[in-house]
Amino acid sequence: MTRLSLAVRGLVTAVAALLAATAASATAQAKPEPRAPQDFVALDSVDPTIIQEIRYFTPHNFVGEPIDGYRQPLCVLTRPAARALHTAQRELLRQGYSLKVYDCYRPQRAVDHFVRWAKDLEDQSMKAEFYPNVDKTRLFADGYIAEKSGHSRGSTVDLTLVKLPARPTRPYHPGQPLTPCYAPKGERFPDSSVDMGTGYDCFDTLSHTLDPRVQGEQRANRLLLKSTLEKLGFVNLAEEWWHFTFKPEAHPDTYFDFPVSRASLTGRD
């Protein structure tokens, strides 16, 4: 084979490889996002009175940036879980309270984002608020971060109580001074919720629902939330006063990855 033939052959091979790579890239870009199953709904379509403050859509969380997969500040849940929250809300409204949700369905890509962050030991920008007493090397061992989350199955919700009339939550500005999540309510980030003893997503044993150090009004608030939801089929995670799963779960063995958005709930077969 002549040098010219070899050169031409090499050029053809290179062009073919480039075209194949371009086609693969175009195919990947054109791949449609997964959609939610039919039994997933936007919570506000079931109960528009429940307050939503979807933290992972914002930079005010333990990572310090919006989390992958949160396209809109929207609570998405399986229909039975959403209906149970509606029933709880009706009971609480009569007592002068409202539910406020921080997180609902969580796509697997968001969990993957948490895992990448937890492995990056250099990034501790939000430590002063969310995990001041926990060494970041312990996040997996202590159970604060895991490679799978029940939230991805669609029937788990993180939430709190708000005394009515609800006050607006002051916006978080990246870079502002941080206060430990277990500080007295008047010192920590000004959330509109009642005093639960810690802020949301506080990586500390004080977040354990029945921690004996939490007493008085704080304990009463936790127990009001817990008892109201448990009567309706929710089960509390003992390590997090805000974390509840509706049982039986509609999808106990499936971890979904569709984005958090209204588009994920439309055009479904």
Rank of each mutant, 00 (worst) to 15 (best):
D112M: 10
D112A: 15
H113S: 13
V115Y: 04
V115I: 07
R116I: 15
R116Y: 12
R116D: 06
W117M: 08
D120R: 07
D120S: 03
L121W: 12
D123I: 00
D123K: 01
Q124I: 10
S125R: 15
K127M: 07
K127N: 14
A128Q: 05
E129N: 01
Y131G: 03
N133T: 15
N133V: 11
D135A: 15
K136R: 07
K136S: 04
A141G: 01
D142E: 15
G143D: 02
G143N: 08
Y144N: 13
Y144D: 05
A146Q: 13
A146M: 06
S149G: 06
G150A: 08
G150N: 03
G150D: 04
H151W: 01
R153C: 00
G154E: 08
G154F: 05
S155C: 09
T156G: 02
D158M: 15
D158L: 06
L159N: 08
L159M: 14
V162C: 13
L164W: 09
P165F: 09
A166M: 14
R170N: 12
Y172I: 13
P174D: 02
G175F: 10
Q176M: 01
P177A: 00
T179V: 09
G186I: 11
E187W: 11
P190H: 14
P190K: 12
D191T: 06
S192M: 14
S192G: 15
S192T: 10
S192R: 02
G197Y: 05
G197W: 07
T198W: 05
T198E: 01
Y200I: 10
F203E: 12
D204E: 09
L206A: 01
H208N: 10
H208I: 06
H208E: 05
L210V: 12
L210N: 12
D211S: 09
P212H: 06
P212K: 01
R213L: 13
Q215R: 13
E217L: 12
E217K: 03
R219C: 10
R219S: 11
A220R: 15
N221E: 04
R222C: 01
L223N: 02
L224Y: 11
L225W: 00
K226F: 11
K226G: 06
T228C: 01
T228N: 00
T228K: 02
L229I: 03
L229S: 00
K231Q: 14
K231Y: 04
L232G: 06
F234N: 02
V235R: 07
N236K: 07
N236V: 14
N236H: 06
N236W: 12
A238M: 08
E240F: 06
W241E: 10
F244Q: 00
T245R: 08
F246P: 00
F246D: 01
K247M: 05
